[in-house]
Amino acid sequence: MSEDVGEAAATAPSTPSTPSTPDPSAPSEPEPRPEAEAAHDTVEAAVRAQLAKALGGVRGMVEAAVPTLAFTGTYVGTDEIKTAVAAGVGAAVVLLLVRIAQRSNPQFVLNSLVGIGIAAFFALRSGKAEDAFLPGILLNAGYAVAMIFSIAVRWPVVGFIIGSVTGDPTAWRSDPGILKLCMRLTWLLVLPCAVRVAVQYPIYLADGDQSGLLGAAKIVMGWPLQVAALAAMLWLLARGRTPIERDEDPVLNPRDS
């Protein structure tokens, strides 16, 4: 039978080949989605993942706290600013070397090293240990003001997290429900910054050496407060299931609830 098929193919009249033209009515094959988009199907899942990544997990929290603990504990024990600065910077450098040896991401250690470096500059310049905490207070005040401004102009910063996942940095603003969600989440990011400033700045202004109290406040109101804010954000995000549209004109669907 295979021989008959071969003969039929050989005797069939040949026709010139013409390039095939795509049928405009035929559905086009979907383009592969970026890995970040494929991993999340809802706005809430995307924001949860991005926030967890930004915080760096438990290890990132520890790496942020250790240099401050070293600085504060050394100063309380020795009453020497230079020794305390060396302890804080040294702790950050050791953490960085561990990261390098393990070939893991040093981002959070570098952030901590930059922070303790700026704090050391302020403390050594003035000769007052409490001045090491002034940059952190000012930074939190700046973050709070910037985020409140972003809410006031209806461009909340959390919205850009969604934009980074959908591929369109501004499409999320076309949906009132998602815009409202982003504003609420941004308020939850504002709260830790505002609370730190409200508590730590009066301590900084108080008479006498307040470095020990400021160090304790910085540690207690650092990652623990940030984790509490994250828990509130996760609770809010867990209530919604807003789908992420990935069409040519990406517009996020309104939430069902």
Rank of each mutant, 00 (worst) to 15 (best):
Q226M: 13
E35W: 13
G136C: 02
Q226A: 15
Y201C: 08
S211E: 08
L230G: 03
H40E: 14
L252V: 13
V195K: 11
V190E: 00
G56I: 02
F133I: 03
P224V: 12
T42A: 04
T242L: 01
N105K: 06
D249P: 00
L214N: 04
F71Y: 15
R125Q: 11
V199L: 06
M61F: 10
G60V: 10
N140H: 10
T15F: 15
A70H: 02
V5K: 12
G117A: 04
L225P: 01
P169M: 12
V76L: 15
L213N: 01
A144Q: 00
G167K: 06
V76A: 14
L97S: 08
A36R: 12
P250M: 08
A8I: 11
E37I: 11
I116R: 04
W172R: 05
K53L: 15
V93P: 00
P22A: 14
G60C: 11
F149V: 15
K53A: 15
F133M: 05
G177Q: 07
V109F: 06
V165I: 13
L138T: 08
T83G: 15
A84H: 08
P254S: 12
G222K: 06
Y204R: 01
E44T: 11
L69Q: 03
A144C: 01
A120G: 00
T15G: 13
P254Q: 13
L237S: 06
A87K: 02
L110V: 15
T72S: 12
N105W: 00
G136I: 03
P30I: 05
A231L: 15
A45N: 07
A45R: 11
A49R: 06
M1H: 10
A10P: 03
D247N: 14
S14D: 15
I162G: 00
A45F: 06
W172I: 03
G142V: 05
S174L: 14
D175Q: 14
G73E: 04
E37K: 10
P250W: 04
F149Y: 15
A232F: 13
A52T: 11
V109A: 05
E130L: 08
A52C: 05
Q210K: 08
R255Q: 09
V94D: 01
A70F: 02
A123L: 09
T78A: 09
K82P: 09
P106V: 00
A132R: 04
A101N: 11
A194W: 00
I244K: 03
Q200C: 04
L234I: 14
K128E: 13
G77W: 10
S257M: 09
T74W: 04
L205H: 10
M233V: 07
I100D: 01
V153Q: 03
D23Q: 14
P30D: 08
V98M: 04
R173S: 12
P27W: 12
P192Y: 05
P30T: 05
L134Q: 12
F71C: 00
A84N: 09
V62L: 15
P16M: 11
L205D: 13
I81N: 06
A9H: 13
L134R: 13
F71V: 02
D247V: 02
T242G: 05
T186K: 04
Q50C: 03
I244Y: 03
I219A: 14
A229E: 02
T21N: 13
A8L: 14
R48P: 02
S126A: 10
L113I: 07
E7V: 11
I162K: 07
L95Y: 01
